[in-house]
Deep mutational scan, measured.
Amino acid sequence: MDVFMKGLSKAKEGVVAAAEKTKQGVAEAAGKTKEGVLYVGSKTKEGVVHGVATVAEKTKEQVTNVGGAVVTGVTAVAQKTVEGAGSIAAATGFVKKDQLGKNEEGAPQEGILEDMPVDPDNEAYEMPSEEGYQDYEPEA
């Protein structure tokens, strides 16, 4: 019985440690998101679009440190934060509304985080759909 109880105690310690790591990862992701939003706020009209992409990228980098179902929630929060940063930029006159959601080359930025393969159960990952990809044929 002692062996059984000791095993359960060790398992509990492992769960607590994993929860603490997840909590730490979420806190880091939130900190990076805040950094990115402050970065966007300090940019001029020309830099705002690039700044919004930076927020998304920093958040995406930190999301990889967070495991399990938390990833889905962090990704949703990050996307809403990026959308909010863009709205703030438009409201303050840093950028025109028609410039939001495009990178410096004018290509749409939507789907940055949505296409990231995420499995809350950590069982399997699927690649994003290939609808947006084109076949590449090298020139002879």
Rank of each mutant, 00 (worst) to 15 (best):
F4T: 00
G31Q: 12
K60P: 01
E28I: 06
G7M: 07
T54G: 08
K58T: 07
K60F: 06
M1H: 00
N122T: 10
A29N: 01
E137P: 04
K45R: 13
K80N: 03
S129M: 10
K21T: 05
V37P: 00
K6F: 02
S129P: 11
A90E: 05
E105R: 14
P108F: 12
D2Y: 15
E126M: 09
P120R: 12
K97H: 09
G47L: 13
A85Q: 03
A29D: 00
E13G: 04
S42G: 06
G36K: 15
V70M: 06
F4D: 01
V66L: 11
V71W: 15
K34T: 02
E123F: 08
L113D: 14
G36D: 02
F94W: 15
Y133F: 08
G36N: 15
D121T: 13
K43P: 00
L38A: 04
A53N: 12
K97I: 12
V49M: 14
K102V: 14
G31A: 11
A29S: 02
P128V: 04
A27C: 12
E35D: 09
V48L: 13
D119S: 04
K60R: 09
T59R: 01
K10Y: 08
K60Q: 04
A85C: 13
T72A: 12
A19C: 04
P138K: 05
V70Q: 01
D98E: 11
G132S: 03
E139D: 08
Y125K: 13
Q134T: 03
H50Q: 13
A89W: 15
V40W: 03
A30L: 13
E114Y: 11
T59A: 11
D119E: 11
G31N: 12
N65C: 09
A89M: 10
A27R: 06
I112S: 09
E20Q: 08
A69N: 05
E130H: 10
K32V: 08
V55R: 01
G41P: 01
Q62F: 05
V77I: 14
K21Y: 15
D2C: 04
V77S: 02
E114A: 03
T22Q: 00
E110M: 07
M127H: 07
A69Y: 12
E131H: 09
V74L: 15
G73A: 15
V66I: 15
V74S: 01
P117C: 12
